[in-house]
């Protein structure tokens, strides 16, 4: 379980090369600079989706990730704008704050299972939106705009991170940042799933009673997982806010929460990298269908239903076959 096969290493190598070298080359050659924004969004949304996937891993359908993304975006914006923090410190702070909220909300609601848990999470996004509208610190409906770009970071005089405001090409910088965050997220997710915590999650997902009979503290693990899940949501949201340089109560809506969940279904709940692929396909799929105007939603939904009907284990089941890389 600690060893990675040569094939896997090659796969990771090719993937890293493609996103860090291939994509910039292609974009440079074609001049489609707008693709940077698209791919950056995909990377960040897939971080939030990774969190949703993790809650699936303990047998809970989470349709509330938008709430935590919104919380993360606001926390980072407030820390940067009102408290003058560096964005790079506000980013983990946003993640931790989202995790803290998840713990407080999770204690009562994680006892629920199935559709009951899903329903409660479904309203969370709306609750956070309404809270953002009501609170003075979030500026209500006006939201927070003109958030400064991330500033440079240096440690003992050695520059570690560049000042985004002084850059010619912030698109590329944000793209790289988002990709690095995404890779760290999925590496962490992969390790988690393949470590003891992951095995305990699997046991809970398959049978909570049996898990507790062998001594698994299911209530505790549920909370830990929900907190990690929401941490990812908070990080994704905070990064989004920084790129858009603004956060509004409607920055993340219920439909975003639903999409995070669909990304997981589409990519495959049995595969760690499923939500990444799901996010990419769903995001591009939606855009490609733009041509169809008012039929966009209809075609989109039909295709989704067909995929979920005929590929219940997600897109990755096509490639990897039965079992796959857990």
């Amino acid at each position: 379980m600690f060893n990675v096969s040569a094939k896997q290493l090659t796969g990771v190598g090719v993937f890293l090369f493609a996103i860090f070298v291939g994509v910039p080359l292609i974009i440079g050659a074609t001049g489609r600079w707008d693709f940077y924004f698209t791919l950056t969004s995909v990377a960040l949304l897939s971080i939030a989706s990774a969190g949703v996937w993790l809650t699936f891993y303990i047998g809970r359908i989470n349709i509330g990730q938008g709430a935590f993304a919104l919380i993360g975006a606001y926390v980072s914006a407030i820390l940067v704008v009102k408290a003058g923090w560096s964005f790079w410190i506000s980013l983990p702070a946003a993640g931790f704050f989202a995790a803290l909220v998840a713990i407080l909300i999770g204690i009562p609601i994680l006892r629920l299972r199935g559709v009951y848990f899903a329903m409660i999470t479904l309203v969370l996004t709306q609750v956070v939106t309404l809270t953002a509208l009501a609170l003075p610190i979030t500026n209500g409906a006006k939201g927070m705009s003109s958030i400064p770009l991330p500033s440079g970071v240096s440690l003992f005089g050695i520059p570690i991170l560049p000042d985004f405001a002084g850059m010619e090409n912030t698109k590329l910088a944000f793209y790289y940042t988002a990709c690095i965050l995404m890779i760290v997220t999925y590496a962490a997710l992969y390790r988690l799933v393949n470590s003891r915590l992951g095995h305990l999650c699997r046991s809970m997902q398959q049978n909570e009673e049996l898990a507790s009979s062998i001594g698994v503290n299911i209530a505790y693990i549920r909370i830990v997982i929900f907190a990690i899940s929401s941490f990812f949501g908070g990080i994704g949201g905070a990064m989004f806010g920084s790129i858009a340089q603004s956060v509004y109560p409607s920055s993340f809506q219920v439909v975003d929460s639903v999409n995070f969940m669909l990304n997981c279904f589409l990519g495959g709940l049995g595969y760690v990298f499923g939500p990444m692929l799901g996010t990419l396909v769903l995001y591009f799929g939606w855009d490609l269908l733009f041509e169809f105007g008012k039929y966009q939603m209809l075609i989109y939904s039909t295709v989704l239903i067909l995929i979920i009907r005929f590929l219940p284990n997600g897109l990755l089941s096509l490639r990897i076959g039965k079992g796959g890389d857990k």
Partner: peptide, 20 residues
Amino acid sequence: KPHIVARKGVVRTFQETTIF
């Protein structure tokens, strides 16, 4: 809580089929 008792060393099995 069941997990606390299990950790003390008192562990049950189930009448109904209960497996992973």
